[in-house]
Design a protein around this nucleic acid. Structure first.
Length: 566
DNA sequence: TTGCCAAATTCA
DNA sequence: TGAATT
DNA sequence: GCAA
């Protein structure tokens, strides 16, 4: 079924990391406790890793995955397949043969398991939406009887296979678990998953790159004085003596940030720089001269700093804090709603998300905005790093270079979204062409991707995808592919952070180069009128590795986690 | 006084 | 096609 | 709002 790939001969599989470490973090530790779940995977064989991951998850949350459908034992059926496949897995002819107390649900139900009493919302089949409605109490009750009724179930590889579980390559841990509740079913799973993952990481181009990356940063690089790219050691300090100043200025910056005018935009730009150097200043600011000596701090900001130091606050903040700001910020949290739209809605009379939802003042939402609104909370919640670990280790054929970018690569504990970069060496004549749609199809089948917000229509090596994925809650995620030769520039670009990139590009342009996500270019001719208009694209002089670009720009090598400026 | 990053996608 | 958004 |  996966066979006819255009351009990708090696096939695709989704590989999920073990769920180690998750349990215990969730407020809802074992919300599946006592439930006996029969799981039917999607009907694509290569979804098996997802299936495995999900079985892990069910176990981690106290549930039991049963390998064989037994109506006396099973409390829930979770299926990602259609009616036909599900029935085959159950060994039944009609859905109506399923006892009414056993609900048929989709995986989404697990994800929204905090609302266990709304099973019908996640019914897999319309004809059975009411099945198992009174189950929430029954589930616990059944646990007891289930424990006593629990009888060794025969291994049933055929059933498992029919249900989309791939068991041929390893012992069936589900069955064995059921016989021996004492054994930790996760141990085996985890070991397997880990081993698999490690093997792949080591053999993949990924590892090779890593070594190359480490070695290059050599002597001819030197910190250019006056450069905006700062020495990493100064870049991030946690809690400095001027924290109160930083906080206050940050607040003011936030207010300007919400405003429409261009001037405010640059004001924010300035505040950012001032705050930056305040962060890296180890002495308490006590005089205006001292303040002014900081890079990015001019007369105005110095005055403000002094006001903060002397009075503990800034009157300007109260002045700037107008009623519209909070509302506009709220609206901007909706995916695909920017400043303009937000203010337009405000002007139309909207003040709350409900107003927007109800179309108050005649506001209309685009498709993407609808989705953005529906999952407002999810999308605006930062993602714990370990959750990204689970969604991101997708491994495609062994030569595919795949890496999670953004704040994840910078080592942050939480990420705003999940950015995945994909490329592939071409030395064997193959490319990753056509891989994105393939991956999308796979991830959709596995219910990992849930909503598409924008999909690149270009049929090239360079594609972009924005959408929502759902390891547990919906998360905003971007997947992009780039040509192999561009990977260095792309790595820099998508690793960020923003400020770091900007500094790098600024430096490049000062040196007569131009840096973008495709590479570093020389001899770019810009229109003297409009600097943004390029008259000549220039020649590419580096793009394959991050080091090349750093070196040519005369910037000392910095690990991703050191590229933090904001 | 004037720049302060670049490009791609979607929607109207 | 241009404006808005990412 | 800063700096060249």
């Amino acid at each position: 079924m996966l066979e006819p790939l255009t351009g990708v001969e090696d096939g695709v599989k989704v590989n999920a990391k073990s769920l180690k470490g998750r349990e215990g973090k969730s407020p809802n530790l074992a919300f599946l406790k006592g439930l006996n779940i029969f799981y039917v995977g999607g009907d694509l064989t290569f979804a098996s890793e997802t299936t495995r991951k999900r079985m892990n998850y069910i176990h981690a949350k106290g549930g039991t995955v049963v390998p064989e459908y037994d109506p006396n034992f099973v409390t829930h059926i979770i299926t990602e397949a259609g009616e036909g496949v599900t029935l085959r897995a159950l060994g039944l002819k009609k859905l109506s043969e399923i006892p009414s107390e056993i609900p048929t649900l989709t995986w989404k139900w697990i994800n929204s398991a905090k609302t266990m009493d709304h099973e019908f919302l996640y019914a897999a089949f319309k004809s059975r939406v009411d099945a198992g409605k009174q189950l929430s109490s029954r589930g616990k009750g059944k646990q007891k009887t289930g424990a006593t009724e629990r009888t060794p179930l025969p291994r049933a590889p055929s059933t498992a296979a029919a249900s989309g579980l791939e068991v041929e390559n390893h012992p069936d841990p589900v069955a064995s678990n059921d016989v021996e509740p004492k054994d930790d079913p996760l141990a085996e799973f985890e070991a397997l998953a880990r081993a698999e993952r490690d093997a792949e990481v080591c053999s993949s181009a990924d590892k090779v790159r890593e070594e190359e990356l480490g070695s290059v940063m050599t002597a001819d690089v030197q910190t250019p004085s006056g450069s905006d790219v700062q020495s990493p050691s100064l870049a991030q300090s946690t809690n400095c003596v001027n924290q109160d100043i930083i906080d206050t200025l940050t607040e003011l910056m936030g207010l300007h940030d919400a405003k429409m005018g261009q001037e405010d935009k640059w004001r924010v730009f300035s505040y950012k720089k001032a705050i930056q150097s305040l962060r890296s200043c180890s002495e308490r600011i006590s005089s205006i001269q001292q303040a002014r000596s900081l890079r990015g701090v001019g007369e105005k900001t110095a005055m403000k700093i002094m006001e903060i130091v002397e009075t503990g606050k800034l009157r300007r903040i109260d002045y700037e804090r107008t009623a519209d700001i909070a509302v506009v910020k709220l609206f901007e949290g909706i995916y695909n709603v920017g400043q303009r739209t937000a203010y337009a809605w405000y002007a139309a009379g909207c003040r709350t998300l409900e107003d927007v939802e109800n179309g108050k003042g005649g506001v209309k939402l685009s498709e993407a905005q609808e989705i953005g609104l529906r999952y407002y909370k999810d999308i605006n919640t930062r993602i714990p790093r370990d959750e990204v670990d689970e969604i991101f280790p997708l491994s495609i054929d062994s030569k595919v270079f795949i890496r999670c970018m953004g704040s994840y690569r910078r080592g942050k504990a939480t990420c705003g979204d999940i950015d995945i970069l994909i490329t592939r060496p071409t030395d064997d004549g193959k490319t990753h062409h056509g891989m994105l749609p393939l991956l999308m199809a796979e991830l959709h089948t596995a219910r990992i991707l849930t909503e598409d917000l924008s999909v690149s229509s270009s049929d090239s090596l360079e594609t972009v995808y924005h959408g929502l994925c759902m390891p547990f809650d919906r998360r905003s995620s971007d997947i992009l592919t780039v040509p192999w030769e561009c990977r260095g520039a792309a790595l820099i670009y998508y690793t960020g952070d923003d400020i770091f990139n900007r500094s790098l590009r600024l430096k490049a342009s000062k040196m007569g180069f131009s840096l973008n996500q495709r590479g570093l270019f020389a001899g770019v001719v810009r229109s003297p009128e409009d600097r943004t208009v390029k008259l000549s694209p220039g020649n590419i002089i580096a793009s394959e590795t991050e080091e090349d670009i750093f070196r040519i720009l005369g910037v000392p090598w910095q690990e991703p986690h050191e590229r933090v400026r904001g």
